[in-house]
Write a protein that binds this DNA or RNA. Structure first.
Lengths: 340, 340
DNA sequence: TTGAAAGCGCTACCAT
DNA sequence: ATGGTAGCGCTTTCAA
């Protein structure tokens, strides 16, 4: 063990009372000094004494006590169930973090693995966040939104496939991905389109709307869409590739670039020519796609800048009654390369 | 705007006092009922009345008030600066989450983007977490550890390359990765080994020790290690590949599988035979590596099970004085495939 | 310029 | 079986 137990005798956490005592002032003065309260003038020597005392004791204010007194927090809660993967969401997340921090909010990610919508909403409400940004992994229902608002959340924003009653919903409709993919494949003359649907749990919220978009774009064109269950492993891909000729497809939208790479390799190993026999299309436009041979056609997604969302949240927090328009915010367009 | 402003007239958050009033009991009784306090017997009819009142008001207890009263929290803080990428860390994270939740801890990820070690430690301490698990992205120094412990953190655990004084350090020495890679490459007879060092910020904490491990393993063998700066984009990889013959290397450890894929493609496009002219080795054993041609040799990392860490934290929380051995916990071994 | 004190919401001790 | 109440740490009004 690397800790030396010699100093840890004073196991008591220093409070502003301790600082006040050491500095020889009242708790009020301590609060004034450490918060730079401008409405009150404190002499410079006193300020120094207080700061020195705080420093010496290693005083850190108690956030819970502070927000209890204040009646509200500056916490923006970002519930996460699955860690979002990929540079797209990563970048968006980071941008949002920075922007919110600039606006003086405390950003907290709260793991909500395996909670139902109601349990999750309750757990979040206990923390009394001033805003909640749900990325659509968790099913936040109208009742949950109501609960959060009643618990003091000024802004409840959902980013996801569907609008949620009561919340401010930024609709990032993953169907756009399917629509963009279908548009491209149809344009290239493909008619029997397969659609990979990952079997891994947690991906339905992406895969289902992507498939739905594909179907929607295809209606009335005479083309067909065939869902193809597949896991993200070689065996599953090989099994799918083995029955490829029976499927009689001339194109496949592989859910995303990673599944596309996996399937394309399996198809090639099974002697299926890409794109001669079957076109393959991914999504997310990972760098990887350009490195494959043939180069992978994909769908590029565009998320709103994190700054935009941060500003929206800030506006909602300050003027909760304000009418802010919901809007469809995710763009998706095909990036044709060699595989289709 | 999708919210109807009709019901939001009562903007007041219900407290246990409101529940008590509605149920016609005291706040104490409300507390007893809602917390199932076993030390006190409450009649069944009363319980029902209280629960009904809580339900009707949409009462949610105030976590801050509760922990203020209790004098401690059950919060485990996981600071995050960069979102950890890759399935390895993702799985580890999820496991840890589940295990801690099972032990009745509240897991909170706290974004600490761009904070210095001292600022970060202070910000964390304000939340009075009972435990802090730093994944080594942030430089937590001994002073910070001290601050956290003084603020009531029973367990401060760091997972990273180096031990931190005062904290319980699980050393996950990334040098092992370099050592494993070098071992394999030397065994195959390579002598002039390149080492890709990503130029992207935030990766130094991995890349530096990996390089150091490579160097360490090579000392005394007569082989040499040549650092090669590279960004994760095609231009940078192509530029590196263009001067490949001048470098006169017979092997390269490419930091990880993704950089390896990128570089290998660039080398092939530049007419460099892999592995004939130059062996390429990645790390992290992504599925992708098996799909490349030649199949990518890599280094497999092994992290401790999340359950292990959760149990460790729980033990430290309950018996802070307990002597728990620090231990090197990351395993790394070469997975030879065709590219080397 | 500084201090005394109320009170945020909650739980747990002590009465009744 | 239930209620009264002190007090966790903090900020802020009001008084001095």
């Amino acid at each position: 063990m690397s800790q030396s137990p010699k100093k840890s005798a004073d196991q008591t956490v220093p409070t502003s009372t301790d600082v006040a005592r050491l500095a020889g002032v009242s708790r009020a003065t301590v609060s004034y000094v450490l918060n730079n309260t401008s409405a009150v003038r404190i002499s410079e020597p006193t300020r120094r004494r207080v700061r020195a005392a705080a420093e010496e004791l290693g005083y850190v204010p108690h956030a819970a006590a502070r927000s209890l007194r204040a009646g509200h927090t500056r916490m923006v809660l970002l519930p996460t169930a699955h860690i979002p993967v990929g540079p797209l969401y990563g970048t968006f997340f980071n941008e949002l973090h920075w922007a919110l921090r600039d606006l003086d909010y405390t950003v907290v990610q709260y793991g909500s693995l395996g909670l139902t919508g109601d349990e999750a909403a309750r757990a979040w409400a206990e923390l009394r966040p001033v805003a909640v940004v749900s990325l659509g992994e968790i099913t936040l229902n109208p009742r949950g939104v109501q609960l959060l608002k009643r618990s003091g959340a000024k802004a409840v924003v959902t980013l996801g496939a569907q609008r949620v009653e009561g919340a401010h919903s930024l609709v990032m409709d993953q169907r756009e991905v399917g629509i963009a993919a279908a548009g491209h494949l149809l344009e290239r003359g493909h008619r029997r389109i397969g659609a990979v649907v990952p079997e891994e749990p947690g991906l339905e919220i992406f895969s289902k709307p992507r498939l739905a978009g594909l179907r929607k774009a295809v209606t009335g064109t005479g083309a067909t869409v065939e869902p193809l269950a597949m896991r993200y492993d070689e065996e599953s891909a090989a099994a799918l590739a083995a029955r490829w000729r029976d499927l009689a497809l001339d194109a496949v939208f592989a859910y995303n670039d990673e599944y596309a790479q996996l399937l394309m390799r399996a198809l090639q190993d099974a002697g299926v020519d890409v794109p001669g026999h079957t076109a393959v299309m991914g999504a997310d436009n990972l760098l990887m796609g350009k490195l494959l041979r043939p180069r992978l056609s994909t769908v590029q997604l565009e998320l709103p800048p994190g700054q935009y969302l941060a500003d929206l949240i800030d506006r909602l927090v300050r003027h909760p009654s304000e009418d802010v328009e919901d809007s469809g915010l995710m763009g998706a367009y095909a990036v044709p390369r060699e595989s289709s």
